[in-house]
Amino acid sequence: MTSAHVTLNSTLPVDELAHTTDGTSARDSFAELLAAHWDRAYRFAYHLTGNAADSDDLIQQAAEEAFRAFHRFQPGTRFDRWFFRIMHNSFVDRIRRDRRRKIFSLDEVTGAVTSDAADPSAIAEGALDGPVLRALHALPPDARAVIALVDLVGLPYDDAAEILHCPVGTVRSRLHRARLALREWLRPYVDAMKRGDL
């Protein structure tokens, strides 16, 4: 099976669907908007949480919160920015709660990423996502979020800034530091990529 490459949109979809016409219930508008941005929203959720079960939970909870707050959403504005922000807030809350309950992930404790025997030849078969995703998950949540938004979902800096509720300059510096950290985790793959072996 060929691995699908993430295609980054250079132009983002226009939120024409955000207008509610007379007769369409709020529920229908919400459903249409959610469906239009669903795949990218899920991608964000997945890379934030690192696994399917938690991302399913995250996106469902965020959808429920978003619907409850839908009366505050301005039709015609960017639904994805608004919804992704809700997802990110939900994710941050969850982390705070987990920290209080002292839940550690095994990776944090054992540093599983470094034990990865980096075999660049394994990459060709589509096994690349394993090491890269593990490295991503080793990053602290802030860094993971900005990488997920910019490099994995393909959003521009100003969208990411709006979603993460910080200045664009912060997005830029966080992103840079996150990429440098990933460079360290993924050194053998970076070198192989630069040589043109991948």
Binding site: S3, A4, H5, V6, L8, W38, D39, Y42, R43, Y46, A52, S55, D56, I59, G126, L128, D129, V132, L133, L136, I147, D151, L152, H176, R179, L180, L182, R183, L186, Y189, V190, M193, K194, L198
Partner: peptide, 16 residues
């Protein structure tokens, strides 16, 4: 940095 970005972009889409 470009290599890191390409590695990230090469991760296949995880579909819901």
């Amino acid at each position: 940095l470009q290599a890191v970005r390409n590695l990230l972009r090469a991760v296949p889409d995880r579909a819901p």
